[in-house]
Computed example of a mutant assay.
Amino acid sequence: MKLSPREADGFFRKPDPKVPGVLIYGEDTMKVALKRQEMVLALIGPEGEAEMRFTRLTGSDLKSDKAALLDAVKAVGFFPGPRAVLVEEVSNDLAPVVKTALDDWREGDATIIVTAGALKNTSAVRKLFESSKKALAAALYDNPLTRSEIEDELKRAGIAEVGRDAMGALEVLGRELTPGDFRKTLEKVALYKLGDTAPLSVEDVDLMAPASVEADMDDVFHVLAEGRTGEIAPIMQRLAAQGVTPVTLLIMGTRHFRTLYTLASAQGGPAAGIGRLRPPLYGQRRDRILRQAQGWSVDRLEQALTLLMDTDLTLRSAGQKAPALALVERAFVRLAHLAGRR
């Protein structure tokens, strides 16, 4: 039986011990692992593994001993309480072994949890769970974290008070990070806020968010928009060392200056336009881009976009022989000089 994403989230939080087995699969292995972990904890509790009410098997275990799964499902533990058997890396040729365990399952037996990566419609393991009247199949898609998932992660991290703008910043972060990295970031936030009763702020989120190449690229575009010519060369060298290509720099730079153009040309001015940006901006980044837009005229932003476009065409031309990074750096210096004109 298939579970919808919403039904799956509810089931992982509060699994029914009368369900004999669940298949959790998806391309994002970290997301699969986190959801499996959530379900196991909700099913057997924090002491379940210590009380030997949890058994872990792999596909290779079942290939060498096809009775291992059924034996683990039927085993009687020393401690009372629900039990679970996790089976990882199950290949399609082991579907009959899993089917036997599901068919022989009786109330009070251990819940069977099977995890896998991306499975095709023709997968025997997937068909087994989807066609079952009692077992369940939950597909985890490679989508950004939803607001409810972010709220669940906040509860897990023990973060209760979150400002509205901070929640917006977390939603943006949830679109950029994998579920595992997002959880680690919240753990860092929770440690940082330990003993601090003030609501979580955008500044707190920004401070604990992981650094990235994108952050370095943001730095160079802020430098250009603010006319800080002397800082261009060091940042360009750092980005080149990180493997960022000149074409990528031009594309991202064009995006940044288009944002400034949108704000500068907005009806009511940049302050009115920034509230209509999608995706929205928060905190210090929002304030900084607003200041940049207020410092540029529409005419100079049109010149900046033309310069970026011309440089892009030069890079892509067949007869181009000059070093690409040097061309981009020269264009960026000219942009920074444009920022200094009034």
Rank of each mutant, 00 (worst) to 15 (best):
F79Q: 13
P279I: 04
P210D: 08
V114N: 01
A138T: 01
R285G: 05
N143S: 10
L57A: 07
F12W: 12
L207P: 02
V298N: 01
G117S: 13
S4C: 00
V114R: 02
D165C: 14
D287E: 03
A240R: 13
G243D: 04
A318M: 06
E49W: 08
E49H: 11
G180M: 13
G340A: 14
W296E: 00
G21Q: 01
T197Q: 10
E153A: 15
M39G: 03
G283T: 11
E203R: 15
K74C: 03
N121D: 09
P234F: 07
K127L: 06
Q303P: 00
V32A: 08
A322E: 04
G243C: 12
L69E: 05
R288T: 09
A84R: 00
R6C: 02
S60W: 03
M217G: 07
L301A: 05
V202Q: 07
K35Y: 09
R164P: 00
G340F: 14
M167C: 09
D219T: 13
D206Q: 14
R291V: 02
E27R: 14
G117N: 10
A157V: 09
L173F: 07
P82V: 15
Y25L: 13
T29Q: 14
T178F: 02
K155W: 00
P15F: 12
T146C: 04
R341Y: 09
R106Y: 07
R147P: 03
G48C: 08
V162A: 13
V87T: 11
T55Y: 02
M309A: 12
T245P: 01
Q242K: 14
E27P: 04
I112L: 06
K2H: 04
G180S: 13
E51A: 15
